[in-house]
Write a protein that binds this DNA or RNA. Structure first.
Length: 481
RNA sequence: CGGGGCGUGGCGCAGUGGUAGCGCACCUGCUUUGGGAGCAGGGGGUCGCUGGUUCGAGUCCAGUCGCCCCGACCA
């Protein structure tokens, strides 16, 4: 096998492996515009499957989709001080249109809180108008210094949900509900176990009361934030003058949330599951779930006819809902086809050849672990849903095991340093939610960040690893993308 | 914005001042086909751009543009 046909090994250079996979598997490519990417059909199909699953959850939890414009007048953007300051360096501006300079420049949305609040200020008047629970699927632009395909691009695709509630507690519940949707999507569909928690003060969304997120471990031990949910309190509704009359005819500002998940999750799938042969896609979101490779010899007409007959049978018996592809390409040897579909992460491969068919069998190979079985053709098609489900579980288990093996509890800065000595891990340690303690912890290990203050590990009063006082949280510490 | 590197067919590269080449990919045909095939033939580049030196510039000089890598922001 020629070296140049292979992708860079993960152990050699994980970043290059990632870029190689994205481009060679034809998920995406760089565009002529710096920092932007073209999502190719295979990558977009994957994103569409993720979208569909999440969109169903968004609808199930009582939200409606709508659409706000791409351009936001500068004056709209500027009403919430923390928000403006937080996003200012990343905003792209349109200053010219119709052949002349604009009177007011227009921001290309970095997120839509401001325009949404401006509109809902006109639409919310009564307690009967609440709650408002809406969502939009769109693109946003945030000028970035360093970009990476899917993980961080200047323009990216996402959904942003926005809600308004009468009570602080209702908003808080909404924040949790939607974070749990993200957890469900990531674990049940993408087969990536996650850790939920709250962002530190320094990492929360600009303008939010607090931010919660889910954090996933990539196969190199680095963390990737894969969905965030914000409690915005009344910060924006006050700034934008959203007010309603409650049952006692008192004027009130509603409590607000927003939450988002981006096409970065495609990057999470790639980095959480992929190996040196390429992608490994969870069946539930794989654009192609089963690929059939017929093997025919030009000097064996009878054999070729048998193979074609068996192939056609698989195709016609394939259950509805199973995404099957038959690879009938001519002039390509089987080995090349195997490599082609392995690179693209197709969960199951069925090899249909004359040798096996002599005994009424075909060979089924599972991408995640290479498990190979010679099974009767008879009845195989009907079993595909179960085989795919088993593959989905195997992928999840593999990721779960890695997360467990590479997670460690530490109770001092020395232990923290030791934990990262060999390889990146997820370290959990008691910590205060203060800038001082965060700075101290980050300084202990190169490129370390506080991912979240874990919501599954309530404080037991253990001393903070930075300052030694009883800590309010257990923090998840990791290097992150 | 600071430090480093690179611009030559789609991709990766070679090219000593003398009229542009290799590998991969692509197209055609034949043979092959149970792990990335072989042979034969074929198409494709005003060498990033501008100016200069020279009889002559991919090559030397100046400028300019763009890109990549490393440091300060982020889903």
């Amino acid at each position: 096998m020629a070296d140049e046909k292979r992708i860079t090994a993960q152990s050699e250079d994980f970043d290059r492996w990632y870029t190689d996979v994205v481009r060679r598997a034809e998920l995406a490519d760089y565009s002529p515009v710096r920092g932007c990417m073209v999502i190719r059909p295979y990558g977009y199909a994957l994103w569409e499957n993720i979208q569909r699953a999440l969109d169903d959850m968004i609808k199930r939890t009582g939200h409606e989709n709508m659409y706000f414009p791409l351009f936001i007048p500068e004056s709209y953007l500027q009403k919430e001080a923390d928000h403006v300051e937080g996003f200012d360096p990343q905003v792209a501006w349109v200053t010219r249109g119709g052949g002349k300079d604009l009177e007011e420049r227009l921001a290309v949305r970095p997120t839509s809180e401001t325009i949404i609040c401006s509109m809902y200020a006109d639409w919310i008047h009564s307690w009967r108008d609440l709650p408002v629970k809406i969502n939009q699927w769109c693109n946003v632009v945030r000028w970035e210094h360093r970009t990476r395909l899917f993980l961080r691009t200047t323009e990216f695709l996402w959904q942003e949900g926005h809600t308004f509630h009468q009570l602080d507690s209702e908003a808080a519940k909404e924040v949790d509900t939607m974070l749990d949707c993200y957890r469900e999507l990531t674990e049940d569909w993408l087969a990536i176990p996650v850790i939920k928690g709250r962002k530190t003060e320094s990492e929360k969304f600009p303008g939010a009361e607090y931010t919660v997120s889910i954090e996933a471990m990539m196969s190199d031990g680095w963390a990737l934030q894969s969905g965030t949910s914000h409690h915005l309190g009344q910060n924006f509704t006050r700034a934008y003058g959203i007010a309603y009359s409650d049952r006692d005819n008192q004027r009130q500002h509603p409590f607000q949330t927003s939450w988002g998940l981006s096409a970065r999750t495609v990057g999470a799938v790639i980095m959480a599951h992929g190996d040196d042969m390429g992608l490994i896609l969870p069946p539930k979101v794989a654009p192609i779930q089963v690929v059939v490779v017929p093997i025919t010899r030009s000097n064996d007409e009878a054999g070729a006819a048998t193979v074609e007959e068996a192939t056609a049978r698989l195709e016609s018996e394939c259950p509805a809902g199973v995404r099957m592809r038959i690879d009938r390409r001519e002039g390509m040897r089987p080995g090349e086809k195997y490599a082609h579909w392995e690179l693209r992460g197709v969960p199951l491969r069925i090899i249909v050849g004359a040798k096996d068919l002599a005994g009424g069998n075909v060979t089924v190979v599972r991408r995640v672990d290479g498990a190979q079985d010679t099974v009767p053709l008879d009845g195989l098609a009907a079993q595909l849903p179960q085989l795919l489900e088993a593959a989905q579980q195997a992928i999840l288990e593999r990721a779960r095991k890695r997360l467990e093996e590479r997670s460690v509890d530490v109770s001092s800065l020395d232990e923290l340093v030791a934990a990262f000595a060999e390889r990146p891990v997820f370290a959990t340690a008691p910590m205060c939610n203060t800038a001082e303690c965060e700075t101290a912890v980050k300084a202990a290990v190169h490129a370390l960040t506080v991912r979240v203050l874990r919501s599954d590990r309530p404080s037991d009063g253990a001393p903070c690893i930075a300052c030694g006082k009883p800590a309010d949280f257990y923090a998840l510490l990791a290097r992150s993308y």
